[in-house]
């Protein structure tokens, strides 16, 4: 069977200890959360680590709590727990929906929210065994210099494949990160556009928690969100395209604020403010809505260009952009997400 390469395993029991171990062991050390991505990549040899710093024994990293109008979710909170959380389901359903469609039941029990946000980028030329990649001649994400997706490409275009990232983007989530100091940053700043180096965290920085502003609940404004995911199978698979939508409606059901984000395209999960802008001021109870959805879909399709990075038909994925966007928006407005690939 495919076995893990040797590494040192450290089990700090506090955040401070975890951080100092990361500092001490340098860039060869990697934090280990649920292991459902990192251990696979280590087995395949598409990632290397000399030291794993397990975060499993740090209690403060796990749990969901409300704090000053924000929902604070520990980075080590299992995805299954996020998906099942009553407060997440009722207040920020897009996150519960996204978490509920990650991989399979077992992997959601193991995988964590933080781990999903930090998921390595994916590509058909990298998520393979060392033997396979050697036969290929490797690629520029690791061990090689050539991109097999974009001819003469100099920058890795492996795709962000984390379902929860777009959900948290549309919710305006911020991250609390522990480095030399604790800092807070918008989620969008976590990602870079280079698939080989897609995270902006320093090697000794730890993702501690995710803070999501809880929408105000009032008669004058309601919030509606949904996540849509295309994949080949209705379980286990990574997204071929993921879209999150969050709409705020006023009392006349007119869109007062909108935000959209997508995943499984390029190295970053993408916020789509210009597309979202097409929805502002739209009366959702009238005929205007469908026109606005079509317009937003056309905009999105111009903006989003799926590549042959992840397996699947890139043409089809591109054609699906407006379709999935429309369905996700309608699901958001009717509070019926998540949207899956099932025929409608």
């Amino acid at each position: 069977m495919l076995r893990l390469p040797p590494f040192e395993l450290l089990r700090p029991s506090s955040l401070e200890e975890a951080r100092s171990l990361l500092v001490e062991h340098g860039p060869g050390a990697r934090p280990l959360a649920g292991g459902t991505d990192l251990l696979v990549n280590l087995k395949l040899g598409s990632t290397e680590a000399q030291t794993l710093v397990s975060l499993a024994a740090i209690p403060e990293l796990c749990g969901i709590r409300e704090e000053a109008g924000e929902l604070v979710i520990g980075a080590m909170t299992p995805l299954a727990q996020v998906a099942a959380s009553e407060v997440v389901r009722s207040r920020i359903p897009v996150l519960a929906q996204a978490a509920s469609v990650v991989a399979s039941p077992q992997l959601r029990a193991m995988g964590t929210l933080g781990g999903n946000l930090l998921l390595d980028t994916r590509c058909q030329w990298i998520n393979q065994s060392h033997f396979w990649r050697a036969a290929l001649g490797f690629c520029l994400k690791k061990d090689g210099s050539k991109c097999h997706v974009v001819e003469k490409g100099k920058r890795c275009v492996a795709a962000a494949s984390n379902d929860t990232a777009p959900a948290l983007l549309v919710l305006g989530a911020r991250l609390v990160v522990l480095g030399a100091q604790e800092r807070s940053m918008p989620l969008a700043e976590l990602y870079s556009s280079d698939g080989a180096q897609h995270l902006t965290l320093a090697a000794d920085e730890l993702l501690v928690e995710v803070r999501v502003p809880l929408p105000e609940q009032s008669a004058r404004s309601t919030q509606h969100s949904a996540y849509g995911k295309l994949r080949r199978r209705a379980s286990i698979d990574f997204p071929l395209l993921g879209l999150a939508a969050n709409l705020e409606l006023d009392e006349s059901k007119t869109v007062r604020a909108a935000s959209l984000a997508a995943v499984a395209l390029s190295a970053q999960p993408l916020s789509l403010p210009k597309v979202a802008a097409a929805l502002l001021g739209v009366e959702t109870s009238g005929a205007q809505l469908e026109r606005a959805i079509v317009a937003a879909g056309a905009l999105a399709q111009r903006r989003l260009k799926p590549l042959d990075n992840i397996p699947g038909d890139a043409w089809w994925r591109r054609e699906m952009v407006p379709v999935l966007l429309g369905r996700t928006l309608r699901a958001a407005l009717s509070d019926t997400g998540p949207v899956n690939g099932d025929p409608q």
Partner: peptide, 12 residues
């Protein structure tokens, strides 16, 4: 709770 033993480190 069901988990996958192939991606679980025994030490943890």
């Amino acid at each position: 709770q069901p988990v996958l033993a192939c991606l679980t480190l025994a030490a943890l």
